[in-house]
Design a protein around this nucleic acid. Sequence first.
DNA 1: AAGCTAAAGCAAACTCTTAGCTTTTACCTG
DNA 2: CAGGTAAAAGCTAAGAGTTTGCTTTAGCTT
Lengths: 187, 187
Amino acid sequence: MVRPGGRSARVQAGVHAAVRELSAEVGRDALTVPMIAQRAGVTPSTVYRRWGDLQELLSDVAVERLRPDTTPGDHGTLRSDLTAWAEQFLDEMSSPSGRAYIRDALLGDPDGGNAGRCSAYAAEQIDVILSRAAERGEETPAVETVMDRVVAPLMYRILFRPDGLDAEYARQLVTGIFDNAGTGAAN
Amino acid sequence: MVRPGGRSARVQAGVHAAVRELSAEVGRDALTVPMIAQRAGVTPSTVYRRWGDLQELLSDVAVERLRPDTTPGDHGTLRSDLTAWAEQFLDEMSSPSGRAYIRDALLGDPDGGNAGRCSAYAAEQIDVILSRAAERGEETPAVETVMDRVVAPLMYRILFRPDGLDAEYARQLVTGIFDNAGTGAAN
DNA sequence: AAGCTAAAGCAAACTCTTAGCTTTTACCTG
DNA sequence: CAGGTAAAAGCTAAGAGTTTGCTTTAGCTT
């Protein structure tokens, strides 16, 4: 009911800001609802009523921080664009704080759509890269193909096998899209 | 210090059993440490000391439930074995309870290795399938290839895009391993 | 400008979590 | 096989976080 710059919007912005400030100051694991509420100048019950619990709130803030803030760089070819993007994606997401954001985003209400939003961010970035390549006249794979062959394996490793990840792995995944030499499986 | 059938082991087993029973009875979201402790016949402080918090405990129990209890079926060919396994994997993991277990497993201490254990379970199953194919004389891809091209995309969708998943998608992923027709990307 | 409704404030009851201290258990010597 | 010992569990009370009913405020609506 209170949309643009109304009280609800101010409270939401204030609470989100409080989460960002405090997680930088005391660390994400030390955050509590009463602490956040005090910093934001609201009562704890306001936070509980709007978000339900700390996890939901952290999930909201995490998604916000996972939103890309720049357009993928143009390196002249599809392959170099994808490679650069994948390397940067891996770099940002595999850091301890990046992993924490992903985990937090996954933690919220599964039907709340926060996880889906993260995926949509990546798909949008990929789409920009592919559209640009198409304009150049390059043959391009489907967005889904890139999601399956590059984004999914990167995310899987980040979440389930955080060790032994490096830029080379990201490059290999991109290469796999262009390389039809086979997987070693007979038909 | 108390290993095999000692008190520690009994307490752990009792608490795990209490979690399983109660999550069936009252639902996973209604679980509390005091409730679990009472059912298990221990004091809450025991649970807090051993597991730290409810999330860690749920993560432990989730990993236990995600452990495969059967050997992948033998359907005569690598392709059919992988297809059947992928379909079953998707079926089990994409259910609401399967997703909850995965989320719980991811939630525990990132350095505790619970997430890695889940991944290892899948890798073991894949390895069984590939080894069997190799014995038959079939050409086989690397375990890593199957993880990247089948397991990772399935898990990615389960976690980030739970809608619109079906067995056909799993089959397509397996087909992708055997099909070297290309992705639509020029080299 | 008055009314109306969604959201926030307030405060008390309640539950969960933490921590210090005591007791028990099971392993390990003598 | 009895006594010692150290790890783990029990107990309890203080502290912190959460929930809830009721009141108040803010901002839209007419």
